[in-house]
């Protein structure tokens, strides 16, 4: 037990430097943006006074320089994104047209490999199953739960329970579920919850994570378990925001709870629903930790992000890994288009 607190001090010092840097960067930026226009304003005032005193024609009001402000507001974000994400995305795209060691150009070889290799096609279909099921199931589960617990007793407790999985990492959650799915041979003491349940009902224990295609669904359950809480909290908040008078009026009109849900609740929370579905879809496309922890992509459960990592880092196939990543970029296009439409509507409305 020779824990040395003195050894920890440099870390805390570094943390302090970080916080100081934060204060300087953000504070400095705001101060700059405040001070500079103020200075220009003062100078203009002075010019105006001087002009009126000397009887010269008043200087024209300068054009508002909105662009300058935008530039400074956006500068840190754009710089960081360029370094951290745009450059890597471009690099990945280039690598996807090159061979394993990123030396020679191979044209579309990596892409034709992707669609001709049976196991990779399997990966692509798995991803499709994930991205259809997860947003759908997690959102509906979250929505139903939110509606049911709305104004129920102990609502806060009920909501905390469902949200709790989010506080555990994907890796942690997957380890927990691995225990649920664990399997021991027939006749042995089952250590997995699911198999205990099955055997107590008189069924045969199964090695769940090895039963394709069922295993993909079982992994999806983990993702839904984590993300349903997210959906529930956002949607529940939106439900709370529906103006009370609308609900009251509907009630007086004698609508059934069913009609209420479809005609009042659902249209009112549409924007929140969109946020949830979009966020979940993107998160699902990129799902990596769950598959990696639970099966490492074996037994036909691999998804694109997982296969990409394996190809690029474990097998040293940079080109093939990159091609998978680029395919991921392409999959997000429909969501982006949808988002553009949304933005247009919003601007017009």
């Amino acid at each position: 037990m020779d824990f040395d607190f003195a050894a920890e001090q440099p870390k805390l010092l570094m943390l302090m430097y970080g916080l100081i840097a934060f204060a300087v960067v953000v504070g400095g930026l705001l101060l700059l943006l405040d001070a500079v226009p103020a200075w220009f304003a003062r100078r203009r005032d002075a010019q105006l006074i001087a002009a009126s005193a000397s009887g010269a024609p008043l200087p024209r009001r300068p054009k508002q320089r909105e662009g300058i402000f935008a530039l400074f507001f956006l500068l840190p974000t754009v710089l960081l994104l360029t370094v951290g994400l745009v450059v890597p995305a471009i690099r990945t795209t280039l690598l996807s047209f090159m061979d394993a060691g990123s030396v020679n150009w191979v044209g579309l070889d990596n892409y034709s490999w992707m669609f001709s290799e049976g196991s990779i096609v399997r990966v692509l279909t798995n991803t499709l199953v994930w991205v259809i099921l997860v947003p759908l199931v997690a959102t509906s589960f979250g929505l139903i739960y939110a509606v049911l617990v709305d104004r129920a007793r102990l609502e806060a407790v009920a909501k905390s329970l469902i949200f709790m999985p989010m506080a555990i990492s994907f890796v942690g959650a997957s380890i927990i579920w691995k225990f649920v799915y664990a399997y021991r041979g027939d006749g042995e003491q089952q250590i997995g919850l699911l198999n205990q349940l099955v055997t107590s009902l008189g069924g045969e224990p199964k090695s769940w994570l090895q039963e394709a295609p069922l295993n993909t669904l079982l992994l999806i359950v983990i993702m839904v378990w984590i993300q349903a809480g997210f959906a529930m909290v956002v949607l529940s908040a939106a439900i709370k925001a529906i103006p009370a008078d609308i609900v009251e009026a509907a009630r007086l009109d004698g609508v059934t709870p069913w009609q209420m849900f479809w005609q009042i609740t659902l249209p009112s929370i549409r924007p929140a629903l969109i946020v949830v579905v979009v966020t979940l879809s993107i998160a699902t496309l990129k799902v990596f930790d769950i598959v990696r922890t639970a099966t490492n992509g074996n037994y036909d459960t691999s998804v694109i992000a997982n296969e990409m990592y394996n190809q690029a880092f474990r097998y040293g196939q940079n080109g093939q890994g990159s091609a998978l990543a680029v395919f991921l970029f392409i999959l997000v296009v429909p969501i982006v288009i949808y988002q553009i439409r949304n933005l247009r509507q919003q601007r017009e409305g």
Partner: peptide, 13 residues
């Protein structure tokens, strides 16, 4: 196989 764990399939897990 696989003593203490189950059948052949349990080897991989």
């Amino acid at each position: 196989v696989n003593g203490g764990f189950g059948g052949v399939k349990s080897i991989t897990t």
